[in-house]
Structure formats: C-alpha cells, structure tokens
Write a protein that binds this DNA or RNA. Structure first.
Lengths: 368, 368
DNA sequence: TTGTAGGCGTTATCAT
DNA sequence: ATGATAACGCCTACAA
C-alpha cells in the first residue's frame, strides 16, 4: 500500500493483505509516506498538520490535501512516545452497570472527548486483586490522569494509584493526598433537606438506611439526617439507623427490621435510589402502602425514580455535571494548574409522591 | 531519578520534580535503567520480563527482582509502536448511561481485562459529527478492534469504521460487511414467548410498542409478535403497533394513543424495559391498573424490572454474557481466526406480576 | 545465553 | 520556511 522507507535504500512494497495470523491491520500510511507524496520532508508534514505558522500556507494546504486523500491519521501512540503525554486518562469504577457511575461516566467521556482525551475504562469490582491489575494496566498505558468514581477507595488501593504520580480526581468520595482531588455533592445539605421535608410532613420517627458502610458520602448523609432531626427537636435514636452493604437485598433486610420494631418508622430516608428500590419492596412485602403508611426518600434521582410507583421523592445529583467537573479539574491538574482540592455541587430536593403526611398516632398503632 | 543514557555519553541526572507546566510526570524507569542496574543489556531485560526461555533462570530472577524494586512498568505505548498492536479496543456506545449498554460494557471490560486488553470508551450520542470524531480518535489510537453496542449504526457510520480495517463486533445489531460480526439475542423467539404467554392468559387484543424505528432488533421482535399472533389464530392489526423514538416520553405517548382506541389492547408487548417503564406510567395516568386492566411485558430484564410495582414480566437478555461473547469473538478475529459471523444467545421469559388474565368482554367495555 | 544494531512513527532541535 | 538528525522506549533480528 505504501512504500517503506528503509534508510537510504529505495522502497519495498508492502502487500498487507496476505498474512493474517495474527491479523495484521494493513499498514497505515505514515508521515513519511505523506512526505514522499508531497515531496517535502516529514517534519514539514508534521508542522503542516499541526497548523504551525512556520510552514508556508500553500505547501501546508497541499500537504493537508494529500494527507486527507491518503487517509492519513497521525499515530497517537508514536506521538505519545515522544511527547511523553498520551492524552489518555483512566476511569476507574467499581462496576460499570451502576446507574450513578454510568451517568458520571457520560459527563466525563463527553468532556474528555471535547478536549482530545481518550478514556480507558477499568472496573475494579471491589476486588483487591483486580484493583492491582487495574493499576498495573493504567501504569503501563501511561495515562496522564485518573478519575475514580464512587469506588471502594480502600486504604490499599489509592496509595497504589498515587504511585503512578499522575493527578487523580475522585467523584463522590475523598481522600487526603498530594495528587488527589475530589468532586462531591453537598451530601449534608441534601440529606438534611430530605429529612426536613419529612419532618414538615409531620413525621417524627424517621429512619435512615445507609449503604457502603463507612464511606464518606454515607457518613455525610447520615450527618445531614442527624442535623435535621436536631433542628426539628427530634431525638436521634440509633435503632432507626441501618447500614446495608451496597446490594439491594441488604436494603430489603434492613428496612424489614425497621418495620418490625415495636415503634416502626413512619418515614425512611435512604442513602440512594437503589436503596430506596429495596425499601419500597420491603414495605410492600409487609402489605403497607407508600406513602400512606410509610414515606420514602431516595438520593441521586436516577432515571427510574420518576417512573416508580409511587414516583420517588429524592435528592437530585447532577451526575453528568459532576463527571464533567471532574474531567475539567483533572485537565487543569494535568496542565500543571492547581485546581481546587474539593469541588462541591449543590443538591436539589425533588418532591414526588413517595412522601406524604405522617399518619396520626391512632392509625399507626396497628403495626408492630 | 534515573540517569538518562544519551548515546555513548555518560548519564545526565533528571530532577523530575521541578518543571510543572504542563505537569510532567516523573520519568518512569525505562528498560535501559533496569539493564544498567542489573548489569545486563536491555534486550536481556526484555527477555527476562517476558519469561523467555532464552535467558538464564538466575539472571532472569535477578532482573525481575530489580525491575520490581524499581517499580518498572514496561511502556505499552512504546511496545505498541514496535509491535504494531496496541492491545487496545474501542467500545462505541450511543450513550453510556443506558442500562443495557452498561451491563454489556461490564461483560466486555471484564473479558478484555482478562486478556490484557484495554478498553477505550467512546460515545457517539447518535450525533453524526461526534461519530466522525469517535472514528478519528479510534483510528489515531490504533485500536486493534472495535465493539459497537446497540448503536444507531447508520449507513454513514459503519462504513467509516470499516475503513479502519480492524475487526468489528456489533452487539444487538448487525450489518453486512467483511470485518463486521455480531452478537444478538434470539429476538424473534423472545418476543414470541412473551406474546404467547399473553395469549395463554386469554388476551386477544395485544399491542406492540417498538422503539428505535427500523432497527434490526426491533424488527425482529415485531416479527416474533406477529408470529405468535399467527400461531394463536389472532389477526394482526396495524393499529395495535406503535413505534417510539427511543425516549420514554415517546412510549408514553404511544401507549396513550393505544388506550384511546375504540377497542384498546388488554395487553402491551414492549420493545424493552425502558419502553415498559413509559407504558406503565401511561396506563396509570388513565387510572387503569396493571395487570387487572392491562398487562405489560418488557424485554431485557434490567435490574429495576423486578422492583417495579407490579414487578415486570419480561424477556431476559444475558447482557453481561453477551458482552463477554462479543469480546471473545473479537479476540478471535484479532488473532486472525475466523469467528462465527453471528452469535445468537437464548432469550428467557421471566414471568412476574405485570401480566395477568385478560378481562372478560363485559368488563372491558368501559374504556374507550 | 547474551549483546549489538536497527527501526517502529512521531516530535524536537538544530542547521540551513 | 524547510530539511537533516536525533531521540522517545521497546522489540526483533542477527551476531557473538
């Protein structure tokens, strides 16, 4: 297809179509091929293609035309080798099929693309061994930066990532470290708004069902919950707080225990919408209605929240925006700018039909 | 950190920590650094690290130890340049935040990782201009193969991808082409099973609400629907078929029109679970109940299907498995093997509570 | 078993 | 404004 330029010697035709094991893609035209066609040196081609002012406008135009006709695509891998910047980032998620991560990923990918960065997707599956492999892979690929989304950022994992010596931005979590920045939502305010909404509806026995035990955002939402209770003059009761483990089944179990209490909650504030999904299920399994018997709030406002029956009252996270923000912060860090260590975005309470007025005392006595 | 080996001349210390604009990652140790430390030549290091039998076991061990201590990571970009294989694939989705795509991605990522491949994530957003950019990016990155998941594979787009001359595997779609293979579910059988289930419950006026007008999988599911009607001795009526445009709102509208018919359907077979979400909403908006007044079936069995109220009867797609299969097929193609042009996986009907017995004639006369 | 010499396709640094 | 030349870090001959 294109002659090879072996030192001083003349070209050697490359057939390309013949050998197929392993499948060799036809050799793409190289910058030297274009140079030969345009009868200029390859650095000139390089300059022309980068719109360098150092090259004659006419020759540049000619070169671009020829390159275009030849279907020339500069190799990012060769460029990366010499520039030492791959314009590539690693995106680490615990699992891709988490809707929250999906939305955030969307924002990241968009922003990355807009700035000429490619995104390596890697999932850690909350598995230490896999985490090591992911770090290893990102290191070998020479990524310029890393975004970790709502991951199990364990004690072991992040230091490993830090060893790569590239900037890291965390979404929905934080961690102290020289290269580690984060994008989070106002968890405290968000949860507080949800609980205050419930209190405003007359609820006094309000439960909190957490998730991802011990994680930053969970702790913050719990703090917001406590805060709202305090402001509402309601005593905090540890029995009304349950922590799941991230799976919906755990949420079902937790809510079931809550409903079995002698004085069960009339409202449940859930760590997120996935947890709320389990809560709704558990409540119905007991023959109770939402919101007549028990009110439920979520967090995230995932796409299905509005389509649940009843539609879920929840705290909206601007997930796409958070992804975009994470990428923009990372871009700054990668270009040497100092970015804010922590970005916070606002939470917005979306009131739908899963929350309603608390029942009066006489009515609620029937269960327990 | 590591001395540079400039030709014959001695080393030059690299400070690495100083210049930060743009942020230069500390130079990683190169194979030559390791060679110097181990007092061998760099090809020997290369061989040792690849477990080549051509190197003395002891020296190999020593080299590996030194490499490990130095935190050496072979550069995939340099390797890619010389081997002409990047061990990288491009994953193209219309949008990442589609749960179907998310699950498939999960399977792909896992399989890719297991085989030492990295995954570039790219979303086309069904936007022609963006599609061009995606193709351009994948070309420059020199990906070894491409997977396209349930995308709008338009007439313009795929030929563009084919120009890259790397194998392509489509998930949930197909296309004739030399390099294009596909992984699909048994759409016809799946939809037929759903409709036969409805017929078995006594339904006669069964509607089909499609999506992605004109796409392969939609056409196949519609065929399955027609097939089931035929087998059940029910006349096909075009008025009972509506096509949306991929957004839930369109499904709501479509179902609303169906319910407004003089003789509305008593059951609705939806293209997928997202469509079903809209259908449920539209049915409820008319004050009708599911399944007492109208039965609904979905397709996919997304995570939320079991948590809807009522839980959704649907056709399960093994999405993770399909992703894995796509990656495995792609691996074969990339290594020169000829893979099956089309893989089909089995569909499984999951009966839940959104489908029930058809109402008797007298009852149903009240609406319309 | 090991070392030497090239080259992968770019960009960068000098000359001219 | 352009060209020659040298890296970038690795792998693959081929030579020793």
């Amino acid at each position: 297809m294109f002659e090879k330029d072996r030192g001083k010697a003349g070209g050697v035709m490359q057939t390309g179509g013949g050998n197929r094991a392993p499948r060799q893609p036809l050799r793409q035209p190289s910058i030297k091929d274009i140079a030969r066609l345009a009868r200029v040196s390859h650095p000139t081609v390089s300059r022309a293609l980068q719109n360098s002012p150092l090259v004659n406008a006419q020759t540049a135009a000619k070169i671009r035309k020829i390159a275009d006709e030849a279907g020339y695509r500069a190799s990012a891998v060769a460029r990366g080798l010499v520039t030492r910047r791959t314009r590539t980032i690693g995106l680490v998620v615990t699992t891709v099929d988490d809707p929250f991560a999906g939305e955030v990923t969307c924002g990241i990918e968009q922003a990355a693309n807009d700035h000429g960065y490619a995104v390596f997707l890697a999932s850690s599956s909350a598995d230490p061994e896999r985490e090591r492999k992911v770090v290893q892979a990102l290191a070998e690929r020479r990524v310029d930066g890393i975004i970790v989304t709502s991951s199990r950022v364990g004690a072991l994992y992040l230091p490993l990532l830090e060893e790569l010596n590239v900037p890291i931005v965390l979404v929905n979590d934080q961690y102290p470290g020289e290269f580690v920045h984060s994008v989070m939502i106002e968890n405290v305010e968000g949860a507080r708004a949800a609980v205050e909404h419930l209190i405003g509806l007359g609820h006094r026995r309000i439960a909190y069902v957490g998730d991802r035990l011990g994680y930053q955002s969970d702790a913050e939402r719990l703090a917001g919950y406590k805060d709202a209770l305090k402001r509402g003059g309601i005593e905090f009761r540890a029995a009304l707080v349950k922590e799941g483990n991230g799976r919906p089944e755990a949420a079902i179990e937790a809510v079931d225990e809550l409903l079995a209490l002698p004085a069960p909650p009339t409202a449940i504030c859930c760590y997120n919408d996935m947890t709320a999904l389990g809560a709704l299920r558990a409540i119905r399994a007991r023959g109770l209605r939402v919101p007549e018997d028990v009110s439920v709030t979520g967090f995230d406002d995932l796409f299905f929240a509005a389509y649940l029956q009843p539609p879920l009252t929840t705290v909206r996270q601007p997930m796409r925006r958070m992804g975009q923000l994470a990428m923009e912060n990372l871009l700054k860090l990668m270009s040497g700018e100092d970015s804010v260590a922590q970005s916070r975005v606002e939470a917005e309470l979306i009131v739908r039909a899963s929350t309603g007025r608390a029942k009066t005392g006489s009515e609620e006595s029937r269960h327990g």
